[in-house]
Simulated scan of single mutants.
Amino acid sequence: MRERILITVAVVLALTGVARAQPPSPDGLAAARRLVATMKLPEQYKAMLPTILLGIKPALVQDRPEIERDYDAMAAAVSDAYAPFYDAMVDGVSALYANTFTVDELRQIEAFYRSAVGQKFLAEAPALAQRREIIVQDIGRKAGDELKARLTDSLRQKGHRL
């Protein structure tokens, strides 16, 4: 889970650079910002900080209690240093959406997310994503096992020793 969040941060930061290549229209950017807020993405980005800090902690603390105490005390103050990254995520994703969709499309998407079914989708999306990932990994593992067995048999039939 932590790795997925860190990958998401990296992708969002990479997209921030891509989104800056073409400045979106002011109307498009405003509509995209409203959509981003409606989708509750800012809250999700803010919630990533504790996971980021937990990912950094083992490398810095190195199982030393004296460092861990200081790290934990300092971690709360680090949230100010996270603010520019958080802002960059919101800005980058807003620009990405503004460059991808028309103002009218952004308004339609926002209307969906404001609807009852859109709100339910937003509420269920994290759990669905986790369950979807489990399904995909499980089936992918089974496919890999099956393909490996078939390829092993085929290679043995050709006289290869495996």
Rank of each mutant, 00 (worst) to 15 (best):
R2K: 10
R4V: 10
L6V: 06
I7C: 08
T8C: 05
V9K: 01
V11W: 13
V12W: 02
L13Q: 09
G17T: 04
V18G: 03
A19K: 05
Q22I: 07
P26D: 07
D27F: 01
A32K: 03
R34L: 08
L35Q: 08
V36G: 02
A37C: 06
T38C: 11
M39I: 07
L41H: 06
K46R: 12
L49D: 05
P50N: 05
T51H: 05
T51E: 03
I52A: 02
I52V: 10
L54D: 11
I56N: 00
A59K: 11
A59L: 14
L60W: 08
L60S: 00
V61K: 02
Q62E: 14
R64S: 07
D70G: 14
D70L: 15
Y71F: 15
A76V: 15
V78K: 04
D80E: 14
A83Y: 09
P84E: 04
F85E: 00
D87C: 01
V90K: 00
D91M: 00
V93T: 11
S94Q: 03
S94I: 08
A98D: 09
N99K: 06
T100K: 08
E105Q: 10
R107T: 04
Q108F: 08
I109D: 02
E110C: 13
Y113V: 04
R114W: 09
G118K: 09
F121I: 06
F121L: 11
E124D: 13
A125V: 09
P126N: 01
A127Q: 06
A129S: 01
A129F: 06
Q130A: 03
Q130N: 02
R131A: 08
I134Q: 15
I134G: 14
V136M: 10
Q137T: 15
I139C: 06
G140T: 11
R141M: 13
K142M: 09
A143P: 01
G144D: 11
E146L: 14
L147T: 11
L147M: 14
L151T: 09
T152D: 08
T152H: 06
T152K: 05
K158Y: 12
K158H: 14
R161V: 14
L162E: 02
